Amino acid sequence: MASWKFASIIEEDKEFKVEGLNIWNYYWHCSDRKIEVIGPKTGNPYQFNEYEIRSPEKTVTFVAGEFSDGKIGLYLKEEESIN
């Protein structure tokens, strides 16, 4: 089972790249999987959706959702990095 690590608070339509792909330039395919993650500030658990974006070269998977304060959090698998 993958371990998900908090990556960033993201703003809608503001460039944010994962593995070199700006996530806002792609359709987010929802996997219908709920992943439990821990909020970075409060330590509260959240159930966020797992998504993937696809380019001709690769597929990138991440977890995203809205915290109780209205901000959008993005999580990556432990072994992935932000480019």
Score class of each variant (00 low, 15 high):
L76P: 04
A64H: 05
G39P: 03
L21W: 10
E80W: 14
Y46A: 04
F48N: 03
Y27H: 11
S8H: 15
G70A: 07
G20T: 08
Q47P: 02
G73D: 01
I35Y: 00
G65C: 04
E80V: 10
F62S: 07
F67H: 11
L21K: 12
I38G: 02
Q47L: 11
D69F: 10
Q47W: 07
K58A: 09
I53S: 01
E80I: 11
L74K: 00
R33A: 06
I10Q: 10
N44Y: 06
N49W: 12
D13N: 15
E57M: 07
H29V: 12
H29R: 12
I38V: 11
N25C: 04
H29Y: 13
S81P: 00
P45D: 01
K71T: 12
Q47R: 11
E19H: 14
K41N: 09
K14A: 15
I72M: 12
S55M: 06
K71G: 06
W24F: 08
L74M: 03
Y46C: 04
L74E: 02
I38C: 03
E57C: 04
F62G: 07
I72Y: 07
E50D: 00
D13C: 15
G20W: 05
V60N: 01
E80N: 14
E11A: 13
T61Q: 10
G73P: 04
E80M: 13
Q47C: 08
G65R: 00
W24E: 01
L76A: 11
V18L: 15
W28V: 11
G70S: 06
E36P: 10
P40T: 00
A64V: 05
C30T: 13
Y51D: 06
P40S: 03
E11C: 09
N44V: 03
F16D: 06
G73H: 01
I35A: 01
T61I: 08
F67E: 06
G43T: 04
E78K: 12
E66A: 12
F48L: 06
E50W: 00
I10F: 10
I10V: 15
V37F: 02
Y51F: 15
I9T: 12
G39C: 08
S68M: 13
P40Y: 03
E11H: 13
N49M: 07
R33Y: 04
S68G: 13
G20A: 07
K14T: 14
P56C: 09
E11P: 01
S81C: 11
K71P: 05
N44P: 00
N44I: 04
T42K: 08
F62D: 08
K17A: 15
D69I: 02
P45K: 10
E52V: 02
W28M: 05
P56Q: 10
E19A: 15
S8E: 15
W28D: 06
S68Q: 12
Y75Q: 02
V18C: 10
E36F: 09
P40V: 01
I23K: 03
L21M: 14
G73I: 08
I10L: 15
Y27K: 13
S81K: 14
A64Y: 07
I38A: 01
F62M: 05
E80C: 12
K14E: 15
N22I: 08
V37Y: 00
N44T: 04
S55Y: 04
G65S: 03
E66I: 14
S8C: 14
S55A: 11
W24T: 01
S8G: 03
S55G: 09
R33E: 08
V63G: 06
E36K: 14
